[in-house]
Amino acid sequence: MARVIFVHGVGQQFSGALQVLAAVGPALRDGVQLGAGLALRDQDVACAFYGDVFFEPGTRSMDVPWWDETDVEGGLEAELLEAWWGQAARVDLEVAGPDEAGVRGPVGYGASRLLLSDRVRAALDALSRASFFAHVSEPLLIFALKQVRRYMTELELQQAAQARLAEVVTEETRVVVGHSLGSVVAYEALCAHPEWPVTDFVTLGSPLGMRSVVFDRLRPPPVNGVGGWPGGVVRWTNVADRGDIVALAHRLASRFGSRVEDISISNGMRMHAVERYLGAARTGVAVAKGLGA
């Protein structure tokens, strides 16, 4: 029975729980060994896999449509893209910012199709020069936007993703680790299940603090600008690389209260890479605390 459960982010739709665990399990165990001198066994770590919930049940497409700027929807998708663009410009000298693009126009639901497409095209062109997205094709980037939008707006999909975490939580589980969108899935599931025995929540490269797109859409919703505490969790450690474009608000204490311990690390040129996050000694220390080490 797993004492630590890992919840993945977007882009895992063609994988499975065993494949994800094979990729990230060693990094997590290395981080705990490096940071706390604690040797975890294979059976101590499990993966809550939800990548397939974005497809029809029993199916899994092996092709990503050749999406372009005309396929990015106004509202949440465009707002998220704009936020990534602005953050990329702040941390990467090769990326021209939104104010330098020479293309004006709203990105909300009221934007005209032409204005929206022009603005989205400028954002995609700018992000193509960002080292952060160096190995991400345009269709895959748009696919990521759509996965975030679908999770944040489709209640049935949210419930399906959170149910995957519920399936692997046992009486032995003490730590939940969420990366990227997986931190949102884990947060909402923990809020919904205060009876779980989980004492420690570790978020990596988390977008939980991103207003409008994520923070203001959480269930339960924030009260007076402060997000709710995740269930029966005793400690919440948030780990972020300052250059991680996904972790726009890299300090979550300002959104969820001073009980959150924010830790900054550097993942080199792979700012959002889950293996870099998990293998970091400071992440390992946070996980080990939940295991009594």
Rank of each mutant, 00 (worst) to 15 (best):
A288E: 11
R211F: 04
V239M: 03
G290Q: 07
D63W: 14
F6P: 08
P98S: 13
E73Q: 15
S180Q: 13
L40Y: 00
V136C: 09
E154Q: 10
A101P: 02
A160R: 14
D92P: 02
V239W: 06
V285T: 13
Y277Q: 02
G257V: 11
A253P: 06
Q87P: 03
P194N: 03
T237R: 07
E167W: 01
L252C: 07
V176C: 07
P57K: 06
E154N: 10
A281P: 13
S128N: 09
V10M: 10
A89M: 12
G16P: 00
R129E: 15
V95H: 04
L127V: 11
I265Y: 01
V103S: 06
G292F: 10
L114E: 15
Q162A: 00
A88N: 14
L204M: 10
A83P: 02
D241M: 02
V260G: 08
P207N: 02
R255H: 10
R235M: 05
E73W: 15
Q87G: 00
G74F: 09
G205S: 08
R270N: 08
V91N: 08
V53P: 03
Q33S: 14
G105M: 06
I263G: 08
L141A: 15
Q87K: 12
W236K: 01
L81D: 00
E275G: 03
L278P: 01
G227H: 12
A83W: 06
F55R: 09
A89D: 03
V175D: 11
R113N: 14
R211Y: 01
C47I: 01
T237W: 11
F55K: 04
H8R: 03
F14K: 12
R29D: 00
G227N: 09
R276Y: 11
W85C: 08
R41H: 07
A78P: 11
A189N: 09
D118G: 06
V185T: 13
V202F: 03
A189V: 07
V274I: 12
A192M: 01
T203Y: 02
A281E: 14
A253L: 05
E100Q: 15
D200R: 01
R164M: 07
S117H: 14
I263D: 04
A144C: 09
P106M: 05
E172K: 07
M210T: 14
Q13K: 08
A130L: 03
Y187P: 01
M152K: 05
N238I: 12
L218V: 11
G178M: 10
E154K: 04
A163D: 15
Q147D: 14
R121I: 06
M269G: 04
M271K: 07
Y277I: 02
A247W: 09
Q12E: 10
A78I: 12
H272Y: 09
R282G: 01
